[in-house]
Design a protein around this nucleic acid. Structure first.
Lengths: 185, 185
DNA sequence: GGCGGCATGTAAACAGTTACATGATTCC
DNA sequence: GGAATCATGTAACTGTTTACATGCCGCC
């Protein structure tokens, strides 16, 4: 999956592993995050497979940056993947719910503290999304890609952001209700 | 993580890998699913680590069932894990959102078909949760565990179900809004 | 006879996490 | 002087998925 995210961004423009990490953190991280270690190793593997090529930029001495560029093979791989629809529900994993499921034997206040802390984190996450509101910005400078319509792309980016907002609002509401239930247990 | 789910259920009562698979499918699957292959191998590893023991039940000839039982070490491992709270947001992964994020260049009708199909799946999932409503039932028979209060446990199971319901309702609403936006693009 | 459910596993591949490792520059 | 950010990577481990593999029983 990470492979396709990297191809997706490299299809906008060539960039380094570090740039990719920042784009992911600033946009897809809430529905797909990745550690830098995985990004670098995946890029290497993709280069071996002919999906990307890389050149080393030495324009600043002392700072070696490896710039990745998508190949035609990479582009067709991305198009092919986008071409066949998902036919299943993506599995979700939420370790908080696992913990809550088995929390019957726990101290009421321990559970409440855990949920209240999660509430804070979700509140912060929501505020973060609300600040992004105007636009996520993988364009930044002019794209070197032939024909990417960034106005159109941005509409889809915003839809995923709307999902994040809806998710956090739902989660906060559920946490509040759940905290109230446990308080009156 | 799966390890703790298995310990959690085995703490209710001893059972086989197959039973565990069914309990997971019937309760935690929407926030943590597992394939049978992983369940069996994880149980073996847990036995090596002294968290569970197993006996082979041959009461029915022809049908060998390996029944797993939690050990004291397993119980304390579970308690220890429940004891230290989550201090981060669990990462979420949703490949549909990844696909949508990079869907600017796709055919409008292809994207719409994919989203409408997801809508159906989420609708089914919601209905499934609504039918479970009365009670998830890992008790079934009398528990062999010393002191599990299944009435109390059930309250926590229900809270995770409420999360599933809220999630599906949120997702359906978002899908409807997103479909409408793309239709008028 | 075929299908689905019961029941158990192994093997290989792939994905993801944590820890180790280095070294420059900038800001306080 | 220390912390943060830029920038890149490897190694070891853990977790997850897919495919292969077997055999019984009951139902239609």
């Amino acid at each position: 999956m990470l492979k396709y995210i990297l191809l997706g961004f490299l299809n906008y423009r060539s960039m380094t592993g570090y740039d990719l990490k920042r784009f992911i953190d600033g946009s897809t991280a809430h529905f797909w995050h990745a550690y830098h270690s995985q990004i670098y190793t995946t890029l290497r593997k993709m280069e071996q497979d002919g999906l990307v090529t890389s050149v080393i930029d030495d324009s600043d001495e002392k700072l070696e940056r490896r710039i990745y560029e998508i190949t035609e093979q990479g582009e067709s791989k991305l198009k092919q993947w986008l071409g066949k629809s998902l036919t299943e529900l993506p599995p979700s994993k939420d370790s908080l719910l696992v913990r809550l499921f088995f929390s019957g034997s726990r101290n009421r206040s321990d559970v409440l503290n855990e949920l209240r802390f999660q509430r804070q984190l979700h509140q912060q996450q929501l505020e973060l999304y609300q600040q992004i509101k105007p636009e996520p910005s993988p364009s930044e400078s002019q794209a070197n890609s032939d024909s990417v319509d960034f106005n159109r792309e941005a509409k889809f980016w915003r839809m995923t952001l709307e999902n994040g907002l809806a998710y956090e609002q739902m989660y906060l509401k559920w946490l509040d209700e759940t905290i109230a239930k446990i308080e009156s247990l």
